[in-house]
């Protein structure tokens, strides 16, 4: 029998939280290896770079395979659960999965700047995060017209899981989401899913 997958995890990382959330929602047993990203800068060390040259968390290691993109990790985790991959709307699911990993990175940069004073790789991350939230809010508004409560269809997919942490943790940089009513309603639907797990910073009520 294969070893359990290992998550190289950091409690404060939004993308690492996405992986923990996915594991909870689908029910995937795994081992956690906490990484001292801050203040220990373990991700800059030679040992960690040998595992992941990009120096980012999360990292998912399973059967000798090393995954470092949150989109790839979530897609891989959902391989036995086609509904989470969007069923016959897989391409659209990947579209929004990619959006989450690429455009919502600004929200995490804004958080880490506000919380820890870490320099942002994105110029004006708060403004960039708000632009991404506007796009998501508009998407959910259009989905609502079709009677669908999630980013792709009526059921949640990996794209929703990838997007949730950046949105739910926006309060960490002072963004209370007052201007994004559809996003707030969507976070409530996410929280109600069986197997949902939270992380420090996610408000009880949005």
């Amino acid at each position: 029998m294969a070893d359990r997958p290992v998550l190289f995890d950091y409690e404060l990382s939004a993308n690492a939280y996405a992986v923990r959330l996915m594991a909870g929602l689908i029910g995937i047993a795994h081992d956690r290896r906490p990484v001292d990203v801050y203040p220990g800068r373990e991700t800059e060390g030679a040992d960690f770079r040998a595992l992941n040259p990009r120096g980012t968390v999360p990292v998912w290691v399973e059967d000798g395979e090393v995954l470092t993109s949150v989109a790839a990790i979530l897609w891989h985790m959902a391989r036995g659960a086609p509904a989470w991959q969007g069923g016959d709307r897989a391409a659209e699911t990947i579209e929004w999965l990619a959006f989450a990993e690429r455009d919502l990175a600004a929200a995490d940069a804004a958080r880490l700047d506000a919380m820890l004073g870490l320099a942002s790789p994105v110029v004006d991350p708060v403004a960039a995060a708000r632009r991404a939230f506007r796009i998501l809010d508009d998407r959910l508004a259009r989905q609502g017209i079709d009677g669908a409560g999630f980013l792709v269809g009526a059921e949640p997919t990996v794209a929703d899981v990838a997007a949730f942490p950046a949105v739910a943790l926006a309060i960490d940089f002072g963004e209370a989401l007052e201007a994004y009513p559809k996003l707030r309603a969507w976070t409530r639907r996410m929280r109600a899913l069986p197997g949902f797990v939270t992380t420090p910073g996610v408000p009880d009520h949005l």
């Binding site: 950091y10 409690e11 404060l12 906490p34 990484v35 001292d36 203040p39 220990g40 373990e42 919380m115 309060i171 960490d172 420090p200 910073g201 408000p203």
Partner: peptide
């Protein structure tokens, strides 16, 4: 040490909100 730090960071970020 990482586990000890993460425990405290978790607690303090809950307070921060």
């Amino acid at each position: 040490t990482t586990e000890i730090i993460h425990f405290q960071q978790t607690i303090f970020l809950q307070d921060r909100i």
